[in-house]
Simulated assay, not measured.
Amino acid sequence: MAIQRMDNVLIVVEDLDAVIAFFVELGMELENRNPVEGSWVDRVIGIDGARQEVAMLRVPGGQGRVELAMFHTPKAIGGERGETPSNTLGIRRMMFAVDDVDEVVARALAHGAELVGEVVRYEDIYRLCYLRGPEGIIVGLAEELG
């Protein structure tokens, strides 16, 4: 077998504290947060002299992880962020299964997130929505119905 599992998704951010707080508010757990640098990092990512701070968050009871990296050197370069629409090329969102969409949305909104559209019902299967968090990061929430 070529692939064993999907280990994590990396997001490069400018405000590591704000993005960690967003994902923790959604229900993820901060696994670790450390400075990362050295020749092994330079060789892996193909950038000489990289210094970054990396945080790993995990889904409670699961194997899914989100890795966040804030570059000190070299500074991260700009990309499409903010109010990009859902049909913009590239990775648009990550989807999380939740017990109660309304409860998670309320917590996230209280911390500055915003709904991209609205909470909708997909047949008798799911309640779904997209949230935009810090730095334009979009997450999807899916509540499985009875």
Rank of each mutant, 00 (worst) to 15 (best):
A21N: 13
A21Y: 10
A21V: 10
F22T: 03
F22Y: 13
V24R: 13
L26I: 15
L26P: 04
L26S: 05
G27A: 08
M28N: 09
M28F: 14
L30F: 04
E31D: 15
E31H: 11
R33Y: 06
N34I: 14
V36Y: 04
E37S: 15
W40Y: 09
W40L: 12
D42M: 03
V44W: 08
I45L: 13
I47E: 02
G49Y: 06
Q52L: 15
V54P: 07
L57S: 06
R58T: 11
R58L: 01
G61C: 08
G61A: 11
G62M: 07
Q63V: 05
Q63E: 11
G64C: 02
G64F: 13
V66G: 11
V66M: 06
E67K: 10
L68C: 10
A69R: 00
A69S: 10
A69P: 02
H72P: 00
K75W: 00
A76Y: 02
A76W: 01
I77H: 05
G78N: 09
E80P: 13
E80I: 14
E80Q: 09
R81W: 01
G82Q: 10
E83P: 06
E83N: 15
E83I: 03
E83C: 01
S86G: 09
S86Y: 05
N87P: 00
T88A: 13
T88G: 00
I91H: 02
I91V: 11
R92H: 07
A97Q: 03
A97K: 11
V98A: 07
V98L: 06
V98S: 04
V101H: 09
E103K: 12
V104H: 13
V104T: 12
V104Y: 03
V105N: 11
V105T: 13
A106F: 03
A113L: 05
A113F: 08
E114Y: 00
E114P: 00
E114N: 09
L115T: 09
V116W: 02
G117W: 07
V119T: 06
V120C: 02
Y122P: 00
E123C: 02
E123G: 12
E123V: 06
D124N: 15
Y126G: 02
L128A: 03
C129Y: 06
C129T: 15
Y130I: 04
Y130K: 10
L131G: 10
G133R: 09
P134W: 07
E135R: 11
E135Y: 07
